[in-house]
């Protein structure tokens, strides 16, 4: 009865586009910050734009970090988008603390969020190619080298190489998608990436309908 994909209302502004794109591929959706609705979700989309530390503060004020971690542990297909991907990591250098340590993230994936080095135009804005490192149901039917829309100044650096699902070349290659078991994240915006983005969201919907597609994903 409840096959809804829940879009976590993390206080950022672009939720509407994500919801419309999911509806376009046939998903039932709910945008919410309600813990019990999130707990019932069959799939979770965790979007975010803006500042890392501010987003963490909003999540904490809404008491969401615990329920998000529990849902991930319970094996619910979970997709972080842009800042939503970055927030999954241990910390970010986006706002260094007074003692020099990094702003704390949700820490469900080990690694840091780093700023592109000086000399490159930042933010990295526009359409860039995504190069998957292995087959994965999230990229089913999407050829390697397909363009997706990015807009960000920071990128994730997973501690474990195998967490990286795809890379993208911006002077150097950075991690543009991650996957570990039921947990997935993309640095680009599938909801703004035209037909390729809709295909990726449709793939996520298929995973939500049939989580066994992720079998073999460790």
């Amino acid at each position: 009865m409840n096959s809804k994909i829940v879009i976590v209302d993390s206080g950022s502004a672009n939720l509407r586009s994500i919801e419309k794109a999911l509806q376009k591929v046939g998903a039932e959706t709910a945008v919410t910050d309600n813990q019990s609705v999130i707990a019932q979700a069959k799939g979770i989309i965790f979007p975010g734009v803006g500042a890392f530390e501010q987003a963490m503060t909003i999540l904490k004020n809404k008491d969401l970090p615990i329920i998000l971690r529990e849902s991930i542990d319970a094996g619910i297909p979970f997709l972080g988008i842009c800042l939503g991907l970055q927030l999954l990591f241990t910390g970010s250098e986006e706002r260094k603390q007074a003692d020099g340590s990094f702003a704390q993230g949700l820490d469900v994936l080990a690694g840091q969020v780093k700023r592109f080095p000086p000399g490159l135009p930042v933010p990295h804005v526009g359409w860039n190619q995504v190069l998957p490192r292995r087959g994965h149901p999230l990229f089913a039917g999407i050829p390697s080298g397909t363009y997706f829309y990015f807009t960000h100044s920071y990128f994730v650096e997973p501690q474990e190489e195998k967490v990286t699902l795809s890379v993208t070349d911006y002077n150097n290659c950075f991690t543009s998608a991650v996957a570990e078991k039921n947990l997935m994240g993309v640095q680009f915006h599938p909801e703004k990436s035209g037909p390729a983005g809709l295909r990726l969201l449709n793939n996520f919907l298929n995973i939500v309908k049939d989580p066994s597609l992720l079998k073999g994903e460790g």
Partner: peptide, 11 residues
């Protein structure tokens, strides 16, 4: 803006 966002999936 809202009608465009409902129908067009590019920035």
């Amino acid at each position: 803006v809202s009608r465009t966002a409902d129908a067009v999936f590019i920035p």
